[in-house]
C-alpha cells in the first residue's frame, strides 16, 4: 500500500474531533439556508394517525386529546408534530383538547396552540380547550376518571373555567367520544395511556415520540396497542405533508379538504421551497433535508474511519 495513503489514514485516525463538529454543523446549516425539495415518504404508522384524526372531521360528537409529556429539550422533534396535528384539527373542524403533566410543558402547550391558531378562526372553549398543567401525581385518577366523565376528572381548564360549562364539552363525555389520545413525549409515557385508558376503556392511543424512544415503543405499535406513532422529526415531516396534501387542500370539489388516499399521497410531492407554505408548517420537512445531509456525512465518516482502522491495523 502506498505510504501516502497510510499516512493520510493515520492523520484521519488522530484528527481533532472539533473538525468533525464543524463539518457536521456545516452539513446542517447549508441545507437550512438553501432548502431543496426532497421527497417525503409517508409511512403507515403516521398515516394511521392521520386517518383516525380525519375520521372525526366535522363531527361534533368526537374529539382528540393531545397529551404533552415533555419539556423544551425535546421540542425540535415534538413541536412540529404538535403544530401539524393542531393544524389538521383546525382545518377540519375537529374538537381538540390539550393537557400536560410537567410544569415545563405548560408554556409549550400555549406556544403550540398560539402557533397553530394564528391562521384559523378558532375559539378557546368552543373549538379547542387547554386543560392546562395537571400534576403527574394525579395522572392516574385523571386518566381513569376521563373514562367516566372528563369534566369531573379535569374540573377546570388552564384559564380556571369549569370544564363542564364549556361549549366544546357538548356531546363529549368520556373516551367513547374523545376516542383518540396522542401522547407527545421523549419517553415511553404513552404506556400509561395504554395501561389505563386503552386496557380499561378501549380508547385509541397514539404516540409522538423522539427518535431515541422509537425502539422502546415499537412493541406496542406491533401489538396494536398503539394505533399509530410519529417517529421523531421524520414523523413530523410526514404529517406536515399529509396535512398539506389532504386537510389543507382546497378546490371546488373539496372546499374543506379532501379525504385520504394512498394513491394521491404516493404521487404528490409538495414543494417546500418558496413562500406558498408558511415556514412553521414545513419546519420538519426542511429539517429533514438537513437530517439527510448530516446522515450521509456521518455514514461517510464511519466508512472512512473503518477503512482507515483496518488499513493502519494491518500495517501495524
Amino acid at each position: 500500500m502506498n505510504q501516502n495513503v497510510i499516512n493520510f489514514f493515520n492523520k484521519i485516525q488522530n484528527i481533532d474531533r472539533r473538525y468533525i463538529y464543524i463539518v457536521v454543523a456545516l452539513s446542517i446549516i447549508i441545507p437550512l439556508l438553501i432548502p431543496f425539495n426532497s421527497p417525503t415518504y409517508v409511512t403507515k404508522p403516521t398515516a394511521d394517525i392521520y386517518k383516525k384524526v380525519d375520521s372525526f372531521a366535522f363531527d361534533e360528537n368526537k374529539a382528540v386529546l393531545l397529551s404533552f409529556t415533555h419539556d423544551a429539550s425535546t421540542m425540535p422533534e415534538l413541536f412540529p408534530m404538535e403544530v401539524a396535528v393542531l393544524r389538521h384539527c383546525f382545518e377540519r373542524n375537529i374538537k381538540v383538547f390539550t393537557i400536560c403533566w410537567l410544569p415545563a410543558a405548560a408554556p409549550l402547550v400555549d406556544y403550540a396552540l398560539n402557533t397553530a391558531k394564528e391562521d384559523y378562526d378558532v375559539q378557546s372553549g368552543v373549538d379547542y380547550c387547554n386543560f392546562g398543567f395537571k400534576p403527574w401525581a394525579i395522572q392516574l385518577p385523571i386518566m381513569l376518571g376521563m373514562g367516566d366523565d372528563i369534566a369531573k376528572a379535569v374540573e377546570t381548564d388552564s384559564q380556571g373555567r369549569k370544564v363542564e360549562n364549556l361549549e366544546i364539552m357538548k356531546n363529549i363525555k368520556n373516551y367513547d367520544d374523545m376516542n383518540l389520545v396522542i401522547d407527545f413525549a421523549g419517553s415511553s409515557s404513552a404506556i400509561s395511556w395504554i395501561t389505563y385508558a386503552r386496557a380499561r376503556f378501549g380508547a385509541n392511543i397514539a404516540a409522538g415520540v423522539t427518535a431515541v424512544m422509537v425502539a422502546d415503543n415499537y412493541p406496542y405499535l406491533q401489538t396494536g396497542q398503539l394505533m399509530g406513532m410519529f417517529r421523531g422529526l421524520k414523523g413530523a415531516a410526514e404529517y406536515e405533508k399529509l396535512v398539506d396534501v389532504f386537510a389543507a387542500y382546497e378546490s371546488e370539489d373539496y372546499p374543506n379538504g379532501r379525504p385520504y388516499s394512498n394513491e394521491i399521497i404516493k404521487e404528490t410531492n409538495v414543494p417546500i421551497t418558496g413562500d406558498t407554505i408558511p415556514y412553521k408548517y414545513k419546519k420538519a420537512r426542511i429539517g429533514m433535508n438537513a437530517q439527510s445531509v448530516a446522515h450521509i456525512m456521518m455514514i461517510f465518516f464511519i466508512l472512512l474511519g473503518n477503512i482507515g482502522y483496518f488499513i493502519t491495523r494491518n500495517k501495524g
Binding site: 457536521v24 454543523a25 446549516i29 422533534e77 426542511i286 429539517g287 438537513a290 446522515h295 456521518m298
Partner: peptide, 15 residues
C-alpha cells in the same frame, strides 16, 4: 434512531 434524535435537536437549535 439515537443519532437521528441528536441531529434533530441540533437542527432545531440551528433553525
Amino acid at each position: 434512531y439515537t443519532v437521528m434524535a441528536r441531529v434533530s435537536l441540533l437542527i432545531g437549535r440551528i433553525q
